[in-house]
């Protein structure tokens, strides 16, 4: 079942072999079209509220890490729930010890990582740009809590909903949390800036 990429367009290749590479291409391509299209929503928020971002020195240093944080935390949360559902360790219900503990662990992770990110941003802006503000800690932690509240709740509910509908959450939740996570994180960061500044 092996074939060089550009050979999938040639006629003499057996249809089964061509289909193997074509299937990969098709799946990756359509997943990316959806991901990129929704990813632009985050970009629009960034462009529209860019002046607010300029008000806080160092906020752009933590922005890429902050956007990535959401996907990483909620992605691993839904992966843990998905695996537990698959091996029948839990039922798709919100009120049970395993789910509650996983949910709260995601809050601890969000607080610790957002603190680490704001610390790096603060130190760097203080040393290099000489215009650091302590508000960056409040903004990062507040935004992390807000986005975690929305995204982890959304990830938990969606994982259970997909499982109940007969889908495998592991196949769907990855791109879902990275795309929705970016939008939720950007909105939370904007709300936190508007509250703190």
């Amino acid at each position: 079942m092996h074939i060089r990429f550009f050979n999938i367009f040639k006629r003499h290749i057996h249809w089964k072999v061509r289909a193997h590479t074509y299937k990969d291409l098709k799946e990756i391509f359509f997943a990316e079209v959806i991901s990129v299209t929704f990813g632009l929503v985050t970009g629009i928020f960034l462009a529209v509220f860019y002046k607010q971002f300029l008000l806080v020195p160092g906020i752009l240093i933590l922005l890429p890490g902050f956007l990535e944080l959401r996907g990483n935390i909620s992605g691993s949360l839904s992966a843990r729930l998905g695996t537990a559902l698959d091996i029948k360790a839990i039922k798709p219900k919100l009120k049970q010890k395993f789910v509650v503990e996983n949910y709260f662990a995601s809050f601890f992770e969000a607080i610790v990582i957002s603190f680490a990110l704001s610390l790096v941003a603060y130190i760097f802006t203080f040393l290099v740009f000489h215009q650091a503000t302590l508000k960056i800690f409040a903004i990062a932690i507040l935004a992390a809590l807000l986005s975690n509240l929305v995204e982890s709740t959304l990830a938990t509910i969606t994982t259970f909903w997909l499982y109940k509908k007969g889908h495998d959450p592991n196949n769907i939740m990855g791109p879902y949390v990275t795309t929705t996570g970016d939008i939720v994180s950007m909105l939370s960061l904007i709300v936190a800036i508007l509250i703190v500044v």
Binding site: P57, I61, L62, G65, F66, L69, N72, V112, I113, V120
Partner: peptide, 18 residues
Amino acid sequence: VLVVASLLSTIGGIGFEA
């Protein structure tokens, strides 16, 4: 792993801020 991955992302963020 999460802290290291997030901090690695700030390398690009420094250029963005500058």
